[in-house]
Design a protein around this nucleic acid. Structure first.
Lengths: 203, 203
DNA sequence: CGATAAGTACACCGCCCTGTGTGCTTAAGG
DNA sequence: CCTTAAGCACACAGGGCGGTGTACTTATCG
């Protein structure tokens, strides 16, 4: 039952409370951080009464965990499922996230929550492992000799760029992409018909 | 009644409250995070009255900033001033920080404070730039063609290992060190006489 | 000694936080 | 229609936080 919001019907601030809460959390947790966003403010932004929020989520912890689970489709699948790119290009495409990404929310959550046992921290861990695994898959597809190692290396580069971008307040993904290009070329034994050239990636 | 460390009576005033506060902050901010450590708890651990703490620091913000400034000597100088190592070895030695480092406190501060204008965030930024600069200096010493680029790349690797170690709760510095070795070998045109092991590097 | 600065003990303020209790209104659907 | 459940408004509890006021004690040194 309860076929809730399926379109613009829910213009009133009636029935789609849960979705509005999660949508608002996406914005606020990113802009202000998890600890920096109170439930009062979040409920106000979501146009949801506090009582309703606590009927959908047992507590803020559960809300935070659920909030983290709403990133997969866009980021993870969106990059790896592009069949128009070669495996190598797909690996490098993972570093093209300049505009709308203040900081990887998984790292932020792990640091802010400061508790490895927290559901959100555990999910962050799982997610990071999943990304490394998908990178490894693509690396295997690209013909790397040690795909797991390359996947782990590329994952580390992504996290490094995310963290460093946060601290320096400057986009460091180009640097990470340049390193990735070197690693990929070094890990693929002797590709033949590829378009790969040694691109110094100056800019 | 609190026979605290007296040491040399160099100071004519003061019985070491400030030092105890900063010493306690080193431990607590790392173990519990900055936001997770209250002034009450910190003062109790430092065996300092709260009133005294606020006579030494105008507020928690200032204390946090000062806390961050107490890391340089050991980490930064300790690695780069080792004359017993070749430049290349010194660059790689920056990745040998496995035992006593839960997470780079600069990244943690930047994420937790969530305000680029915060004094501590600004200092974190300066520090990260300084590390990159010293890495670049050493890279130049090692004969890299583009020392600035290599320095920035190595700095990114360190931050990546720190962040990823935090999220995964696993030591990822070996992975970063492996990448560093590849990058260094690729960046130094034709090293001679070194003991560098060529790991699949196709010049 | 006595002056002075450093440190102490402890209560207290106001604020914001997560989380609830209670009663009321609204929308959906048979 | 009337039932049912989702949502709302609002007040409030309990606690931790950063920070302060006040009066007292202690160490250091001229």
């Amino acid at each position: 039952m309860t076929e809730l919001e399926k379109g613009p019907t829910g213009r009133r601030r009636g029935r789609g409370a849960r979705e509005r809460i999660l949508s608002a959390s996406q914005q606020l947790f990113r802009e202000q951080g998890i600890n920096g966003t109170g439930m009062d403010q979040l409920c106000a932004a979501a146009q949801v009464s506090k009582r309703t929020a606590y009927q959908h989520f047992t507590g803020k912890d559960e809300l935070v965990a659920e909030y983290l689970r709403r990133f997969d489709p866009a980021v993870l699948s969106g990059v790896f499922d592009r069949t128009d790119l070669t495996p190598r290009e797909r690996l490098l495409a993972a570093f093209d996230i300049p505009p709308t990404t203040p900081l990887c929310p998984y790292i932020a959550a792990a640091v802010e929550l400061h508790d490895p046992q927290h559901p959100a921290s555990q999910y962050a861990r799982d997610y990071k492992k999943a990304v490394a695994a998908r990178l490894a898959d693509t690396a295997r597809e690209a013909g790397a000799t040690d795909p797991e190692q390359l996947g782990e290396q590329l994952a580390l580069l992504i996290d490094g760029a995310a963290a460093r971008t946060r601290v320096l307040d400057t986009d460091t993904f180009p640097t990470a992409a340049a390193i990735a290009a070197v690693l990929i070329d070094n890990a693929v034994p002797a590709a033949a018909g590829d378009d790969r050239r040694r691109e110094g990636v100056s800019s």
